[in-house]
Write a protein that binds this DNA or RNA. Structure first.
Lengths: 150, 150
DNA sequence: TATTGTTATACTCTATAACTATA
DNA sequence: TATAGTTATAGAGTATAACAATA
């Protein structure tokens, strides 16, 4: 019998509940530690908006909806990003009411740098784990990603 | 050969780096989803302080240091908790400069309720996973907790 | 008349500096 | 003189309401 065909018993409800609590806490602790250790200069809400713009330019309205903040808040956030030279506002090609917000090359560099720093903290911890623990986390990260995207 | 004696190869540096990035992102996504889905009435900073006080009463200074915020910020946070009836300020038995902040019974109930709601989202997701995936997450939560507490 | 974005204003959480009481 | 906590004040980020420009 190889590991791939081994059968596992499903967890009982009480065990599911306990695991859910522990797992949730563990993820929150990791998030907090990563954020604290990274000491990056991009504020969380700015970072989040910049990530959205990495894929494609968007209007302030779209950004507000995606980030679930009010339109005036997004106006302010975009304004701050413009001041720092990380995004640019341009008129919409056809609808003159709309504005198109685009990421600058400087912003792409800043994002890359920030991610590198955030990953560094985690990379050190992961590299200090046993190979077996690393293997488990490899599978767990896939499962957690799937769960978060549900 | 059982799983317990199976040997795993250590990840190469590039794989460690990749795993670290994926794992960090997965934890942050889970945190965000949990926070978004729980819609609880306790603000994050209040919740965090209340958790610290669950173990034992503490002074505002201690709380400020643990939470890594300024003393005036903690004064304000504690003030808000007092207003909501979740903590009480009492004079220190020997040092009259100090204040002892204690959690009320109402707060303990509110904490329990909030945790139950937060766990609920995660519990539903966990119960829908394969038994094998549940087993992996069980081990992963232990490892992640260890990493976060390092 | 509806939609997009901005401005006006206010509330919360954060910080630093100055102040009070006590050690 | 140093320490614990608070108050004073200001800087972000958030929200709702009101407004201007355009569809």
């Amino acid at each position: 019998m190889s590991e791939n065909t081994r059968s596992y018993a499903a967890l009982r409800p009480s065990a599911v509940s306990s695991l859910a609590g522990e797992l949730r806490l563990a993820c929150m602790r990791i998030s907090r530690r990563v954020r604290y250790e990274s000491t990056d200069s991009i504020a969380p809400h700015q970072f989040s908006v910049m990530c959205r713009l990495e894929e494609s330019p968007r209007s302030p309205g779209e950004l507000a909806e995606i980030e679930r903040v009010s339109a005036p808040s997004m106006t302010r956030t975009v304004g701050g990003l413009v001041e720092r030279g990380w995004v640019e506002r341009a008129p919409h090609p056809t609808d003159k009411r709309q504005v198109v917000v685009t990421l600058t090359d400087d912003a792409r560099k800043a994002l890359k740098d920030t991610r590198r720093k955030r990953d560094a903290w985690m990379a050190v911890r992961v590299s200090n784990l046993d190979p077996e623990e690393q293997a488990i986390l490899l599978r767990a990260s896939e499962i957690l990603t799937k769960v978060a995207n549900e």
